[in-house]
Simulated assay, not measured.
Amino acid sequence: MHMNSAPHLLTEDRPEFERILDDALRHAHDRPDLASVGERLNLEQLRTMALNATALITAAAAAEYDHYVKARDELRAPEDPLSTRDSDPDPMTDAAAGSGAGVAAVVTVLAPVLAGASAAIFLIVGYLLQMLSPAPVFADTLVAAGWFFGAVTAASILVAAVALLIAALRNSSTQEPAVDEEEGLTEEVSRAREAWRHALLERGLLPFLRDALADPSVDPTSNRKPYRSSGRIPKVGYSGPDFASPNEGPVAGPRPTFTSPDFTSPDYGGPEHQPE
Rank of each mutant, 00 (worst) to 15 (best):
M3K: 05
M3F: 10
S5L: 15
A6G: 06
L9I: 14
E12R: 07
E16G: 00
E18L: 15
D22C: 12
A24H: 03
A28K: 10
D30W: 08
P32I: 15
P32G: 04
A35G: 05
S36T: 13
V37T: 08
E39L: 01
E39P: 00
R40V: 14
L41I: 13
L41W: 02
N42R: 06
N42C: 05
E44F: 10
R47C: 06
A50V: 14
L51V: 04
N52F: 02
N52R: 08
T54C: 12
A55N: 14
T58I: 11
A59N: 11
A60E: 11
A62S: 09
A63L: 11
Y65I: 02
H67D: 09
R72Q: 13
D73W: 02
A77H: 06
P78C: 04
D80M: 05
D80H: 00
P81C: 01
P81K: 03
L82T: 02
S83M: 14
T84P: 00
R85A: 07
D86K: 11
T93G: 07
D94M: 14
G100V: 12
G102P: 02
A104T: 12
V106W: 12
V106M: 10
T108N: 08
L110D: 06
L114V: 00
A115I: 02
A115V: 09
A115R: 05
A119I: 03
A119D: 09
A120M: 07
F122G: 10
V125H: 13
M131H: 08
A135F: 07
V137G: 04
A139Q: 04
L142N: 07
A144C: 05
A144N: 08
A145L: 09
G146Q: 07
W147A: 09
G150P: 05
A151G: 13
T153Y: 02
A155F: 09
V159C: 09
A160F: 03
A160E: 03
A163L: 14
L164V: 10
I166D: 04
I166N: 05
A168C: 03
A168S: 15
E176K: 12
E176A: 12
E176C: 01
A178H: 06
A178S: 09
D180R: 15
E183C: 02
E183I: 13
E183N: 12
G184F: 01
T186C: 01
R191G: 08
A195N: 07
H198S: 13
H198N: 04
E202C: 13
R203Q: 03
L206V: 15
R210F: 00
A214C: 12
A214Y: 04
P216M: 05
S217D: 12
V218S: 07
P220E: 00
T221V: 04
S222Q: 00
N223L: 00
N223G: 01
P226N: 09
P226E: 01
P226K: 05
S229G: 07
S230W: 15
S230C: 10
G231V: 06
I233N: 11
P234W: 00
K235M: 11
S239H: 05
G240N: 08
F243C: 04
S245P: 11
P246E: 02
E248F: 02
G249R: 15
P250N: 04
R255P: 01
P256S: 08
P261Y: 12
P261H: 02
T264P: 07
S265F: 04
P266T: 13
P266E: 13
Y268M: 02
G270R: 01
P271W: 03
Q274H: 11
Q274A: 07
